[in-house]
């Protein structure tokens, strides 16, 4: 599936990809920044438990050719990136016949929370331990975030803590608002 303009068959207005987060709020000064990255291409690669079709272990995330490869479940790997890079990676990787792939771009929302206090903000909505040793850069885990099952990936940006959060598309606005509210406490606090 695509989020860019697909080929046209019937002459109609150009379809436009729409995120499920429709209303963005301004980040309070100094608070962790919350951005919508839902339009990234997301492909789920499935194999047997214990297999390693992409060379990435469960709970680990690594970037390869611009694509973030995430061991999201013992039998599932998530590819996250822009459409061309994901397609290239898939085309150049050899998969066993038992591996299946499915584009879940439209099923999952994707938020990014960045800032020195982003772990503290997440602690207000999620029971995971975000300590640097327990959830280091390049780690991933799934848990309830504000009561919505979510996948969290630590993906630091320029040495600043940053988390990607994926969840079911239909919760978009609710989840955005809940996390945005959790960040408010950390406005104007530098560390």
């Amino acid at each position: 599936m695509h989020t860019s303009i697909p080929r046209g068959c019937v002459s109609v207005a150009e379809p436009e990809f729409r995120s499920s987060i429709t209303t963005l709020a301004a980040a309070p000064l100094g608070a962790p920044a919350l951005t919508d990255e839902s339009s990234l291409t997301k492909v789920s690669v499935r194999a047997q438990v214990g297999a390693s079709p992409l060379g990435v272990d469960f709970t680990r995330a690594t970037r390869r050719d611009g694509v973030l490869i995430v061991g999201i479940r013992p039998d599932e790997w998530l590819l996250l990136g822009n459409a061309n890079e994901v397609e290239t990676l898939l085309a150049t990787t050899e998969f066993d016949a038992s591996v299946s792939r499915i584009d879940i771009t439209h099923s999952r929302l994707c938020l990014r929370l960045t800032g020195v206090r982003s772990a503290s903000a997440l602690e207000k909505v999620c029971s995971l331990d975000f300590d640097d040793m327990m959830f280091p850069d390049g780690a991933t885990g799934s848990a309830s975030v504000a009561k919505v099952s979510s996948d969290l990936i630590r993906d630091d940006v320029n040495d600043e803590p940053s988390y990607l959060l994926l969840a079911d598309r239909s919760f978009g606005q609710y989840l955005y608002d809940a996390i945005h509210d959790a960040t408010a406490e950390f406005a104007n606090i530098s560390s």
């Binding site: 309830s144 009561k147 099952s149 079911d168």
Partner: peptide, 8 residues
């Protein structure tokens, strides 16, 4: 639910 939302 599909989202595990009742767990917390």
């Amino acid at each position: 639910t599909e989202t595990g939302a009742d767990t917390d």
